[in-house]
Amino acid sequence: MEPLIRLEHLTYTYNNSSVPALNDVSLTIAAGQWIAIVGHNGSGKSTLAKTLNGLIEPQQGQVFFNGTLLDEDSVWAIRRKIGVVFQSPDNQFVGATVADDVAFGMENNGVPRAEMVPRVAAALAQVRMSEYAAHEPARLSGGQKQRVALAGVLAQQPEVIILDEATSMLDPQGRQDVVSLMTQLQAAGNFTIISITHDIDEAALADQVILMDDGRLIQQGPPATIFNEGALLRRHGLTVPLSEQVRTGLVKQGVPLSDQYLSEEQLVSELWTLHLNK
């Protein structure tokens, strides 16, 4: 079966740079999955995301969306299917009020007003921002602005939602709100989520983790496989999840835990078994 997104040998070098930001990257993403692209700042993860909806055009290689080659003719149709929430809560807020901003994408695609009104209302309800519909952005918190940006994406009924470091500028409360919202959306809808992040705890929520460094794809696999290799994560500028630090620490002291990465939940339950069998 054709994957939702297929990247073939992408290479891209920014104008003012001598080293490629993307270096021969090939990968596929299946529909309905939650993908985390991780890597330190400057590893090429955001550049990779920008190739997916044609914001940058790789010098070499091709992007396929649902089997269609992304080119000048197909790019606008593909953009309609990919919604992006960017890093800066302020700088992506186009509308003068919350409702206006949610409608912006639909306006661009010429959606009739009669259809827009209920879609704006529904999207705002989904992100729990209905009561703020008439508010101006200046009076919202960072987390609220990102939820509005997410509503703008949802209102366009996309197939893919890209979160380009969407939580990195938020306080813990705001980050928590956005992450829990994403978890709910993923469970309820049939979206493919691509989250670009250097927060390892956020990456742990994904089905697949793609590790990037120096513009190259280092490894792709389920979190358990990637997080199992603490040294690998550290070598590429990331931290090791706490549950993994605890697991390896306990194993060293002779506690017979699984030799696989465990989420906090799994860790606690394995530990309890070991406690009861003491």
């Binding site: 909806n53 919604g83 960017f86 992506q92 186009v94 409608a103 912006f104 639909m106």
Partner: peptide, 27 residues
């Protein structure tokens, strides 16, 4: 300049091309 550049990226991602063919939410 940073704001403008971020905003441009966001607007293009959300399908903004030019004023023609757009519908209006605010009336």
């Amino acid at each position: 300049i940073d704001i403008a550049s971020d905003l441009t990226t966001a607007m293009i991602s959300r399908g903004y091309r030019d004023g023609e063919g757009r519908s209006r939410y605010r009336i």
